[in-house]
Computed example of a mutant assay.
Amino acid sequence: MSERVRVAVVGAGGWGRQHARAFSQHSKAELVGVWSRDLGRAEARATDWHTKGFDDLDRMLDETTPDLVSVCLPNTEHFLLTRQLIARGIPLLVEKPLVFDLAEGETLIREAAERDLFFAINFNHRYAVPVLRARDDLAAGRLGELEFLTWRFGGEGGSDHHPHANLIETQCHGIDLLEHLGGPIESVTADMTDAQGNHPTVVATLRFAGGAVGSLLGSYNSSYAYPGTHLLEVNGHRGRLLIEDTVKRYTFSTAGEPTREVWEASYFDDRSRSFEQTFDTHLDALLPALQSGAPPPVPARAGLRALTVATAIIQAHQTGRRTQVPSG
Rank of each mutant, 00 (worst) to 15 (best):
K96H: 06
L98I: 08
L98M: 08
D101C: 11
D101K: 07
D101Q: 11
A103V: 09
A103N: 11
E104L: 12
E106R: 04
E106M: 05
T107G: 10
L108G: 09
L108W: 00
E111S: 12
E111K: 03
E111Y: 06
E111V: 06
A112Q: 09
A112F: 08
A112K: 06
A112H: 05
A113L: 10
A113S: 15
R115C: 02
D116F: 03
L117N: 01
F119G: 02
F119S: 03
A120N: 03
I121C: 08
N122L: 09
F123T: 08
F123H: 12
F123Y: 11
N124P: 13
H125L: 14
Y127S: 10
A128L: 12
A128C: 14
V129Y: 05
V129W: 03
V129Q: 07
P130W: 01
P130D: 04
V131P: 05
L132P: 07
L132G: 13
R133Q: 12
R133A: 12
R133P: 09
A139K: 10
A140R: 13
A140G: 15
G141L: 09
R142T: 09
R142K: 11
L143F: 01
L143P: 02
L143N: 02
G144R: 04
E145F: 07
E145D: 12
L146E: 00
L146M: 05
F148H: 14
F148V: 14
L149D: 10
